[in-house]
């Protein structure tokens, strides 16, 4: 449904996006994750035909974004970072205007409006002037605007930024319901967002792709060098730590920050399981092992590790 190959965008000397490629199949919700300035907005602007790419190409719904821009634009719904609303219009008349310029045929217009307002929960604000709405409701109107013509592809740029926690949860629920019918690309710099809503992840940093896959496969990629959390009852001081550090395959030991004495984080070399060796050693030295478990990598860690690697590289 969306095929991006070797897409780049330069603003003069500034390289905003460099050689990115990814694919999204029909019906998936793809999370486009990266810190501020990573190039998310720039990429989305290229996919929506707002900006031409400097190099490379992309197809959306089977059409080239440069050569067949009109066909692409018929098939996308786009929510920019700042919802593109007219503050002096009412919700109803604004959506009617958008539906018209998106090409919704006259007879279907009213039912599309009702449907969209229902889905985004703004039906009771139909006659409210948009400038009088709260930020959260304005965001919903922005979402409704992107949905009104039932596009095959939805492109949402940081749809929850600036909302309060309750509004974020509500918008996320709406977005989650959109997968299946629509192919959705959703950008964010907030991790919980993607882990909750997206089936596929593309991580972007400094304009380049830093990681890609399902949240699970990304996690597996990082499992290689595993971190264990070990709680060992032993004498205070450095003795226990040194004992662990001597074990074959252990890369690093540290006291877990913020925990009581005796809780260590043990990092092993990639592909080595040190749990048996550690257990044996503890018993041999006459200490007792209270707890030993692998620390699950959260998406936060993935994100940090992937992006910080890129920075230092």
């Amino acid at each position: 449904m969306i095929e991006v190959s070797e897409l780049s965008k330069h603003y003069g000397d500034v390289v905003a996006v460099e050689n990115i490629s990814f694919k999204a199949e029909k019906g998936v919700i793809l999370g486009f994750l990266g810190p501020n300035g990573a190039g998310k907005t720039t990429t989305m602007r290229m996919l929506t035909c707002y900006l031409p790419p400097s190099h490379g190409e992309a197809k959306v719904a089977g059409f080239d974004i440069v050569e067949e821009s009109m066909e692409v634009r018929k098939r996308i719904g786009y929510l920019p970072e700042q919802p593109p609303v007219y503050h002096d219009m009412t919700v109803g008349s604004y959506l009617r205007f958008v539906a018209k310029i998106k090409g919704v045929p006259g007879p279907k217009l009213n039912s599309r409006l009702d449907d969209t307002m229902e889905k985004t929960g703004i039906a009771h604000h139909r006659d409210t002037v948009i400038g009088h709405l709260s930020k959260g409701y304005r965001q919903r109107v922005g979402l409704a605007q992107a949905l009104v013509h039932e596009p095959e592809v939805l492109i949402l740029d940081e749809p929850t930024v600036g909302l309060d926690p309750k509004q974020i949860i509500e918008i996320r629920e709406v977005i989650k319901g959109l997968g299946g019918d629509h192919t959705v690309i959703l950008s964010t710099h907030i991790l919980p967002e993607v882990s909750m809503t997206c089936g596929q992840l593309v991580i972007i940093n400094n304009g380049r792709i830093a990681g890609e896959g399902t949240p699970e496969s990304l996690m597996a990629q990082l499992k290689e060098g595993e971190v264990l959390r070990a709680h060992i009852d032993g004498p205070p001081g450095a003795a226990v730590r040194e004992m662990i550090a001597r074990i074959d395959g252990v890369l690093d030991v540290s006291q877990e920050p913020g925990s009581e004495e005796g809780v260590f984080l043990v990092t092993s070399l990639p592909g080595q399981d040190v749990r048996d060796a550690l257990t044996r050693q503890v018993v041999e030295d006459g200490f007792s092992l209270r707890e030993l478990r692998p620390l699950d990598m959260t998406l936060e860690d993935i994100f940090l590790s992937l992006t910080s690697e890129e920075v230092t590289a």
Binding site: C49, R73, P80, E81, V85, H87, V98, I101, G103
Partner: peptide, 13 residues
């Protein structure tokens, strides 16, 4: 200024 130009330019118009 309002960013609504993005709506117009990405619509099939």
């Amino acid at each position: 200024k309002n960013g609504t130009i993005e709506l117009l330019m990405t619509s099939p118009i």
